[in-house]
Design a protein around this nucleic acid. Structure first.
Ligand SMILES: [Zn+2]
Ligand SMILES: [Zn+2]
Ligand SMILES: [Zn+2]
Ligand SMILES: [Zn+2]
Lengths: 142, 142
DNA sequence: GCAAAACCTACACCAACTGTATCTTTTTCC
DNA sequence: GGAAAAAGATACAGTTGGTGTAGGTTTTGC
């Protein structure tokens, strides 16, 4: 039986985060001591490791919820899990494309500025006027 | 004089977002009509365009605040603005490197799964066991 | 002059946590 | 055995950058 602190160390997850996962129903409610402290078993350790590893690969908590559910049913076909992963791959590739465009613009503005007064700063000039950009970049965020 | 709705259309910013920027002090308080409605001038239009364009290039609102401040002082040296842009470029490159690693792993797990039961699913197998990964990917998020 | 469109404030909510305050339980050490 | 320290408990606020909704007021167009 593991305390929450031990589980935290073993998985590299903050104690609060573990309680948060329990709160949103991603981790099951563990057993408790007489005094009310949480105690975990190895199944829960595995589950938390799965969650953390999935997070490191960028899956959302909602996706992880589905993946965990599929993992809990060994006899179901796996195409749903594969679809989730393919979706994630696609999203990663979209983000990369967007970042690539940003990188181009940022590099250009940094390299073209030769210092001086802010009135003549190339960085600020580009920020003021998108027509100086070579690429489009409509969507914000993500 | 522009209404908030006109400003919204001209800059592609939601009305609520404009009010939000005012609330956090990024946009100045505009003039008001007798009845209390906001009215903007061209300087404010420029400022909002600057903010939006900077957001599209991935700058944080805090960074934008600094950039706006620098832009408001034409005689100051511009190295601070350049430093902010270089920092942003670095962050973009870090994110790209991280996404590149994720892409490698995701591609591999998707391509190696040949369908079947979830018990034999390569996707789920990798999520369960990081030792099947080729890269490290410690930090979560961003 | 009246309806519709646009505006107003105030508050709640999103992801995915993290931090803080206050209190209780458990462990450790003499 | 008993004090002190470490760890755990709950509850709630804050983070980033907004978005959505409710309920009411102003402006505009005909
Ligand atoms: Zn410069
Ligand atoms: Zn641009
Ligand atoms: Zn599969
Ligand atoms: Zn891995």
């Amino acid at each position: 039986m593991l305390t929450i602190g031990t589980l935290s160390k073993k998985t590299g997850t903050k104690v609060q985060t573990i309680r948060y996962y329990e709160q949103i129903g991603l981790m099951p409610e563990p057993g408790r001591t007489e005094g009310g402290q949480r105690r975990y078993d190895n199944a829960q350790l595995d589950r938390l490791s799965f969650i953390r590893h999935s997070r490191q690969l960028g899956f959302s908590l909602d996706a992880i919820r589905e993946l965990l559910d599929l993992s809990d049913h060994p006899n179901r076909p796996c195409h749903e899990a594969d679809a989730i992963a393919r979706r994630q791959l696609k999203q990663v590739e979209q983000r990369m494309a967007r970042l690539e465009a940003l990188r181009t613009e940022l590099k250009r503005m940094v390299h073209e500025c030769s210092g001086g007064r802010t009135a003549d700063c190339k960085v600020l000039e580009v920020l003021r006027d998108h027509s100086e950009c070579l690429t489009e970049h409509d969507e914000i965020g993500a």
